[in-house]
């Protein structure tokens, strides 16, 4: 029996490990490419992909060492693109495909500074963080207020309105895309952060729903006791509900932060100046402007991805709890 269990475990581990590899390989590839020199990014046809970045080797005079097929060990006369080979002191023109650079394991860190310089990284980061933080603040304040009303105050029409909240969750954004653009244009908000931030202060159905589910679980007696003590509704909200709901609020804040960090369509439509670009837009712009520079592009993707991964590791528990909460009660 014990033996059978052990085998079962090993099989499960093997299966899970194999699947994990599939999930993680693209990330590894991204980081690996971000550390490769331009000349080494495209593997020559027929050769396997290079997992550990390699760099060309140079001699003391800074000349690139190459191997010329047929005459091994012949070195390149000039470092740059001129493919002139010295053979026994004689110059020889060769096709680039006939030479193989000599390589060793080495990381091409320069992709990172290059990407930072081209992308105006700090400005984009500042914009992204500004939007994220404002939206998180707006969402947490507005959604908790609204959720409180939906969960802890009895008033006629409440449940009908809550159905509306649930229904708008199903509404595809495509329906309101055009009129919202016209509305923001009319308000003079296009070309600023306002269309991305201000709506967050008016509640977002998903988070209202999430917080309502949580508030429902807080015992009624606590509110009644506070009310007897002469607490106003706002007082109960601030002093009783909010302190007890920190995990749920943290979940909502985290989700919203991640969502905003990655949001693409809205910044794409509403931000018009490169000084306003968020990281996601800047990355896409970079991709279309510097199509051939995969090294810096992957470096930038890594830079955008890593903070999120770190944040996720720090807050894993909150995260999984949050997902579970929405999933089960849905």
């Amino acid at each position: 029996m014990g033996n059978r269990n052990a085998i079962k475990r090993i099989v499960a581990h093997l299966l899970l490990a194999a699947t994990s590899v599939l999930f993680i390989v693209p990330f590894v590839w991204m980081v690996s490419t971000s550390l490769k020199h331009e000349s080494r990014i495209f593997p020559e046809s027929g050769k396997p992909p290079e997992w550990i970045p390699r760099t060309d080797q140079f001699d003391e005079q800074g000349r690139r060492l190459i191997i010329y097929e047929g005459k091994p060990g012949v070195e390149l006369k000039d470092v740059d693109d001129k493919k002139v080979i010295l053979v026994d002191g004689q110059e020889l023109n060769v096709w680039p495909s006939d030479v193989t650079p000599q390589t060793r394991i080495g990381f091409h860190w320069q992709n990172y500074p290059k990407a930072f310089a081209t992308m105006n990284f700090w400005v984009n980061l500042r914009n992204t963080l500004f939007i994220c933080v404002s939206v998180v603040i707006g969402t947490v304040i507005s959604c908790s207020l609204v959720a409180y009303s939906f969960s802890r105050i009895e008033w006629p029409g409440r449940d009908a309105l809550f159905v509306v909240v649930l229904a708008t969750m199903m509404l595809p954004y495509e329906v309101t895309l055009v009129p919202l653009f016209v509305l923001y244009k009319w308000l003079g908000w296009t070309g600023s952060f306002k269309p991305l931030i201000i709506p967050a202060f008016f509640g977002t159905p998903f988070y209202i729903f999430l917080l309502r589910q949580f508030f429902m679980g807080i015992p009624r007696d606590l509110s009644s006791a506070a009310r007897i003590d002469g607490c106003s509704e706002l007082g109960i909200f601030m002093n009783v509900i909010i302190p007890l709901s920190k995990p749920a609020l943290a979940t909502a804040a985290l989700f919203m932060f991640l969502f905003q960090w990655a949001d693409f369509l809205n910044p794409l439509i509403y931000l018009q100046d490169d000084r306003q670009y968020t990281l996601a837009i800047a990355l896409q712009q970079f991709q279309s402007n510097h199509e051939s520079e995969w090294g810096p592009l992957m470096a930038m993707s890594t830079v955008i991805t890593v903070p999120i991964i770190v944040l996720f590791f720090l807050t894993q528990r909150t995260f999984i709890q949050g997902i579970t909460m929405t999933g089960l009660k849905g």
Binding site: P26, F264, A280, I281, Q284, S301, I304, I308, F312
Partner: peptide, 14 residues
């Protein structure tokens, strides 16, 4: 879970 939280822009480029 990781791939679901990474910005879509980065994963698309990847």
């Amino acid at each position: 879970f990781l791939p679901t939280i990474v910005p879509v822009v980065a994963t698309s480029v990847l």
